[in-house]
Amino acid sequence: MPYRVCVTYLLRERDGVAQVLLGRKKTGLGVGYHVGLGGKLEPGEAAVEAAVREVAEEAGVTVDPADLDPRGELLYLFPHRESWSQRSSVFVTTRWQGEPAESDELVPAWHDVADLPLDEMWDDARQWLPDVLVGGHVSHEFTFGDDLATVVSDRPLPTS
């Protein structure tokens, strides 16, 4: 059974350019990749609660749960390493308090939404992230190959 995670993308506009905060992972799954802020849900924790906690832990900023805009669900399947399989709730926000700072997990940096570092992100990101950052929603399943890095199949999640 995939474990539950969340990911949050902080969005801002600077000089008319839309930007997103990504962090370069320093430890754990995806080390070296640029990722959104997020992680595992703790027992009994809702995705929104986890998103608020993870943003604070990973970037040192405070987000009000009411300011999180849910943008969908992703299912990541790793048949060659089942322990990596996860279901992720995706959020964006344009409101927070504080200035993003480096943590034990991530080195945060702002990136233009129109010029994402997709070659330095998980392989699936190119297929859904640009659209989500401009207001879209995602409901998708990605299966990774035996290299644990390349998407070998993808499909929309069944509607419930």
Results as ranks from 00 to 15, higher is better:
His140Trp: 15
Leu157Asn: 04
Glu120Lys: 06
Thr150Lys: 08
Ser88Trp: 03
Phe91Ser: 05
Lys25Trp: 07
Met121Lys: 04
Trp96Gly: 00
Ser139Cys: 14
Val92Ile: 14
Leu74Asp: 00
Pro79Ser: 10
Asp104Leu: 12
Leu11Ile: 13
Glu42His: 07
Asp64Ala: 15
Ala47Leu: 03
Arg24Ala: 10
Thr8Leu: 03
His111Gln: 11
Arg14Met: 01
Ala59Asn: 00
Thr94Asp: 11
Glu45Pro: 13
Glu120Gln: 14
Trp128Ala: 01
His111Cys: 04
Gln19Thr: 01
Glu73Asn: 02
Asp131Lys: 05
Asp146Gln: 13
Ala50Tyr: 00
Arg95Pro: 00
Glu99Ala: 15
Val5Thr: 15
Val61Met: 13
Thr150His: 14
Ala50Ser: 13
Glu141Phe: 10
Pro156Trp: 02
Arg4Leu: 13
Lys40His: 02
Thr159Ile: 09
Asp112Asn: 11
Val5Ile: 07
Thr150Pro: 08
Val55Phe: 04
Ser153Tyr: 06
Ala125Cys: 15
Pro156Leu: 14
Gly32Pro: 03
Leu11Arg: 06
Pro100Thr: 05
Val35His: 04
Thr93Met: 08
Trp122Thr: 06
Gly135Pro: 07
Gln127Pro: 00
Gly72Ile: 03
Pro156Ile: 05
Pro65Glu: 11
Trp110Leu: 07
Thr159Lys: 11
Thr150Ala: 07
Ala59Phe: 04
Trp128Val: 02
Gly44Glu: 06
Glu102Ala: 15
Ala66Tyr: 06
Val5Tyr: 06
Gly60Ala: 12
Arg71Tyr: 04
Arg24Cys: 09
Thr150Met: 15
Leu11Gln: 02
Val152Gln: 03
Val35Asn: 03
Asp64Cys: 08
Asp124Pro: 02
Glu99Ser: 15
Gly72Trp: 02
Arg81Leu: 10
Val17Leu: 08
